[in-house]
Amino acid sequence: MLVNSEIQPFTATAFKGGEFVEVSDADLKGKWSVVFFYPADFTFVCPTELGDLADNYAEFQRLGVEIFSVSTDTHFTHKAWHETSDTIGKVQYAMIGDPTGEITRNFGVMREGQGLADRGTFLIDPDGVVQFMEVTAEGIGRNAVELLRKVKAAQYVREHPGEVCPAKWEEGDDTLAPSLDLVGKI
């Protein structure tokens, strides 16, 4: 289980902003980050997910969250996909190439024998600690708006020690302050 664990060291090349850039675990520390694994470029569900994140990227940025998508494709493949797909052409966040599978294995989402990543989503706090993770089956796409809700909840809990966000919590809703007095009364 990776929740409440610090991310493992890594270095990789990503495609971002029309350039190849080096990315490491250090780039995920000091701010909130979403690491978003997907099986492969030039596929079917994957571009809809990356496009959904691209459409909501400004809101993630407003919350101080950086996004890093990762597949076991190379950074060269990410560049080609970005240049040939209108959907992927909207992506402004880093698209990390992980052809060795090191990062994918570090996060426990490698499909061994296939060389592909599962659909894994990880929210990492400014200390480099995983606060949320979700892994879905091949055919189940993710939702950036729901991820934003979870990011807001994690940020709220970090900023308000002693409070927790109940089911369906939305920004501005009431929270709970766990105590002996609440046991059996919810």
Rank of each mutant, 00 (worst) to 15 (best):
T74L: 03
T77G: 06
T77E: 02
H78D: 11
H82L: 08
T84A: 14
T87G: 07
G89A: 06
K90R: 12
K90I: 07
M95S: 15
M95R: 14
G97R: 03
P99S: 05
T100M: 01
E102Y: 02
E102C: 04
I103Y: 05
T104S: 13
R105I: 04
R111G: 02
E112L: 04
Q114V: 01
L116R: 06
A117T: 13
R119C: 10
R119Y: 09
T121F: 12
T121Q: 10
F122I: 02
F122Y: 11
G128R: 04
G128Q: 09
V129N: 08
V130P: 07
Q131E: 11
M133P: 00
T136P: 06
T136D: 11
A137D: 11
G139Q: 02
R142Q: 13
N143E: 01
A144R: 01
A144P: 00
V145D: 13
R149Y: 08
K150N: 14
K152N: 08
Y156T: 13
Y156H: 13
Y156P: 00
V157S: 07
R158Y: 01
E159A: 08
P161E: 07
E163W: 07
V164G: 14
C165A: 15
P166N: 01
A167V: 09
A167H: 06
K168E: 06
D173V: 00
